[in-house]
């Protein structure tokens, strides 16, 4: 019971930290950082996504190797999307 209560507290704290990071994203958007505005936004988004994947999706502490395989495959296919789309974008001007 106490373990359940502790985990609930942890998840509430985690949820609040995600909301705080959202507020930081909004705040950072109004600060002129030049080309670094999208960098900061993406960095915060990545931190938030990592927290969600590790804790809310229970990837951290998962004992099954399959869980790791699923996560790695997901990121692998995301990498394919980004790499091949960028392969077009970055070489469009080449003649």
């Amino acid at each position: 019971m106490s373990e359940h209560a502790a985990s609930r507290t942890f998840y509430v704290a985690l949820g609040i930290s995600l909301l705080v990071l959202t507020a930081v994203t909004v705040f950072a958007a109004f600060v002129n950082l030049g080309p670094f505005n999208p960098v900061v936004a993406l960095l915060i988004a990545t931190i938030k996504a990592t927290l969600v994947v590790l804790f809310f999706m229970h990837v951290k502490g998962a004992s099954e190797k399959m869980t790791g395989a699923v996560v790695v495959s997901g990121f692998f296919f995301l990498a394919i999307l980004l790499a091949l789309a960028m392969a077009d974008y970055l070489t469009r001007a080449w003649r």
Binding site: L84, A87, R92
Partner: peptide, 11 residues
């Protein structure tokens, strides 16, 4: 559609 010729060759 206007994608890079080099990317088109790879695809």
């Amino acid at each position: 559609a206007g994608i890079s010729l080099y990317a088109a060759m790879v695809f």
